[in-house]
Design a protein around this nucleic acid. Structure first.
Lengths: 132, 132
DNA sequence: TTCAATAGTTCCGAATTAATGAACTATTGA
DNA sequence: TCAATAGTTCATTAATTCGGAACTATTGAA
């Protein structure tokens, strides 16, 4: 019956390096972007069911912890699961525009990526059609 | 007489993750901020003489390479030394506002850091005065 | 030409950090 | 009280990063 409370850095202890490092991992930005979009109350396992990726839960747990310790999200137990919310508003006070620009860039990149994928698929189908 | 040309990613191959990772290291942001500020034509060794840090040159070389391969700077030989320039303008086209926000946040943090340091020094001098 | 000096790069072993399976903890609901 | 669910922790392995030593490239003397 331990329930040690999760560690959250205070606003002034949040660093740019920490934020950038936390968001330099594709899985973590994806998680963070989802939490920011607030499309669902975001738990660890929720992310698994939503994203098609198969990530071990220990790894996922670490990712959430890194986001938390970088000061990007706040996590609290809600019964058996976790409720994570973004700390954007706070961080915005200290580093104006930073998170917005990152999430925006991430959006642009996934849009471009989807387009590139579609093109690649088209190309490869043409290629395979030819090679018959 | 090799002179293999340095690798630079094309604009569409630059990724947010790559940029964030490259700038998540204190030494690398410092280098990048200097290059962006364009206060001097920026070579590897120039950074060493300007910053007070003592960083092994092999490490420094790696840092420059990471910045280059993340698409943040462009490097070309100028005689015996390297001439590095930022690729901000290009990156701005693909990820508007991103680099500006990061450099800005970094500036804010170093200002705050300097203030915190000053306060700490004041506190410790008071403490040592008291303890006499 | 040859040589020393300068500026970087490359290589490789050591140190650090990240990923993951297995075991564990906490909470709920039957 | 017990099974199920959601996460955490730990120990091990895998991947990165750091940094010294040796190497390459260029310049500017002698």
């Amino acid at each position: 019956m331990d329930v040690r409370p999760l560690f959250h850095p205070s606003l002034e202890d949040i660093t740019v390096e920490g934020i950038l490092h936390a968001l330099s991992d594709p899985v973590r930005v994806a998680i963070f972007a989802d939490i920011v979009a607030q499309e669902y109350p975001h738990s660890c396992s929720m992310f698994l069911t939503v994203s098609d990726k198969a990530i071990p839960k220990s790894t996922l747990s670490q990712h959430f912890r890194e986001l938390r310790e970088a000061g990007l999200i706040r996590g609290e137990r809600r019964g058996v699961e976790m409720h994570n919310t973004s700390r954007c508003a706070e961080v915005e006070k200290r580093f104006p525009g930073l998170l917005g620009a990152i999430v925006n860039a991430h959006t642009i990149q996934s849009r471009d990526g989807a387009r590139a994928k579609k093109l690649a698929a088209k190309r490869s189908s043409r290629r395979s059609a030819k090679s018959k």
